[in-house]
Amino acid sequence: MAAASISVTESPLVSYLLRRADDALILGHRLSEWCGHAPMLEEEMALANIGLDLIGQARELYGYAATAEAAGHDEDDLAYLRDERQYANLLLVEQPNGDFARTMVRQLFYSAFVDPFWRATMASQDPTLAAIAAKSEKESAYHLRHAAEWVIRLGDGTAESKRRAQAAVDDLWAFTGELFHADAVDQGLIARGIAIDPESLRAAWTATVSDVLRAATLTKPANDWMQKGGRAGHHSEHLGHLLSELQWLQRTYPGATW
């Protein structure tokens, strides 16, 4: 008998935590898909390490969300028993891995945002969130460096690596606007000093990404049309497939452990 989805009572804080947790879990899961398929042993380890960092961040955020909701759910319920429309991750992180260049460009776009995001969140009025931020910031600082170094080498590498890196930049660009979108859930928490206004991180993100693209001899897309919807549960066609793999075991064998 398959486990049904749970219904989560989302206060603004719970929503805010779930969004960040979903970002980390979905991107971490994407990186885990590289296991056994990475182009070289060294990157096999690096991608798995980064994926595990992200899944660790997701666990802490889900755990805190479960505590804040206080409805008897735990981190596993929140990860495994919410359906696609309940997931509120950024569209960027659910995009398929594609080739190594695409995975690195996706990682750069996310890390260039989330590294300053965590650094700013260390000053949150919410001490639990500030503590999660302090731990996560050190991880995301490395993720950013790792991705940036690779994007520079792929862009400024061979004709083939440059072509692939530029295609990834062009295709993923429309998903970067959502990083800076704040809705009513965010606004209340921002006013209370709990959440960070993502708009305040735009200049840092733009500077980081522009510097890396310039060093990589890649062109920043001129197109400023941005796709959004992830925060409201409106996902691309890719998330449902990802969740079916992520959740299959717990849905089919509820409470399975090993």
């Binding site: 060294e42 990157e43 380890m45 690096a46 390490n49 490395y142 080498r153």
Partner: peptide
Amino acid sequence: LALQAARDV
């Protein structure tokens, strides 16, 4: 990249 890989591996 060698330093990064050494850290990761």
